[in-house]
């Protein structure tokens, strides 16, 4: 708990110092994207790692956030400081509605229905031309505002700090423990008075809110939003970040986000090769590192530490 907090604080301080050391716009862009992805991965992790159900529809919230911010900016001239929080709130409302339906389901049904919601939203964004401008998307979000990438970096760092603070508070609170109880053992959770549906809903809506904030920021940063925000490849990228870093930890998604952002950038020209590699990475993680890098580190610590009798056989069954 304290270790995780200190690591996060340390990373935050490092990130805050970055704009003083780096002025190269390209490097700053990478840093902005890494933080943006860290927020997203963290928000998905609340669902995957703490509700314990696998959502393939998280782009629904990223997308509604992005479209909300874009529409408010383009049509009503809202500034960024107002549009981004509004994006988060609208996404949270969508989270409430979608959660009310999907959180009654488990396993493959949950996976497929969350995916269905993202697809429905993508199709609507693609076809409701009067509002979303269809496949052309909405351009010129927050036009003529900010030129220096360092300002965007400061904003995304602020958002990251906010979302990680909220996650940290949630995860290490009574409510977070209740969510973990539901994930670990639904029956025990109920028997100690946890309402599994309500508890999952809290984490789900919080995740949606944070993804919506990220979406709103993305709209202003790229200054364009199209139906691609709902795309599955976006989803796949976020999943890989969470899995690689380690679901159910707060540091894991950050680590995953940084690694995957860099990988994406280095293999930019080789789209198919990059995605093939991602596919292999996903399989390798599931087979060899089921708890991600953070889980691997934790296990090494555990093995060196106070649990020498842990035989590999027992471990396999319990991870």
């Amino acid at each position: 708990m304290t270790l995780e907090r200190n690591v996060l604080l340390g990373l935050g301080v490092l990130a805050a110092l970055l704009p003083f050391a780096v002025t190269d716009q390209y490097l700053l862009h990478l840093a902005v994207m890494a933080l943006f992805y860290a927020i997203l991965a963290n928000s998905l992790n609340l669902v995957v790692g703490y509700v314990g159900e696998f959502s393939l529809g998280h782009t629904a919230f990223l997308g509604t956030g992005a479209y909300t911010a874009a529409l408010l900016s383009v049509n009503a001239g809202w500034p960024m400081w107002a549009a981004v929080p509004a994006a988060g709130l609208v996404a949270a409302l969508f989270g409430l509605g979608i959660g009310a339906i999907t959180l009654r389901l488990q396993g493959p049904y949950f996976v497929i229905v969350t995916l269905s919601f993202a697809e429905v939203l993508r199709i609507i964004a693609n076809n409701w031309i009067g509002v979303t401008n269809g496949p052309m998307g909405l351009a010129g979000v927050g036009q003529g505002g900010i030129a220096d990438k360092r300002v965007f970096f400061a904003i995304v760092l602020g958002l990251a700090a906010l979302t990680f603070y909220l996650s940290y508070r949630f995860v290490y609170s009574n409510a977070g423990r209740a969510a973990v109880a539901v994930r670990e053992n639904r029956y025990v959770a109920q028997s100690i008075g946890v309402n599994p549906f309500g508890s999952a809903m809290q984490a789900f809506v919080l995740g949606a809110f944070m993804a919506g904030l990220a979406g709103g920021f993305y709209a202003f940063y790229i200054s364009f939003v199209g139906p691609e925000v709902f795309r599955f490849s976006f989803m796949a990228t976020i999943i890989i970040m969470v899995l690689m870093g380690g679901k159910g930890t707060l540091v894991g998604p950050v680590v995953g986000a940084v690694i995957v952002t860099l990988l994406e950038e280095y293999l930019r020209e080789l789209q198919e090769l990059r995605l093939s590699l991602f596919g292999l990475i996903v399989m390798a993680i599931v087979l060899f590192l089921p708890n991600g890098l953070m889980g691997f580190i934790a296990r090494r610590r555990e093995q060196r530490g106070d649990a020498p009798s842990l035989s590999p056989a027992i471990e396999e069954r319990t991870v």
Binding site: R169, R177, E184, N185, V188, I192
Partner: peptide, 29 residues
Amino acid sequence: NVMKRLTVFENVLTGHYLEGRQSLLATFF
């Protein structure tokens, strides 16, 4: 029926759920 991956202390702490129920606002702040 316990939460196998949590420690003994964490299991019992989780059991205190009802006493510690609070609003989301209080959770965050």
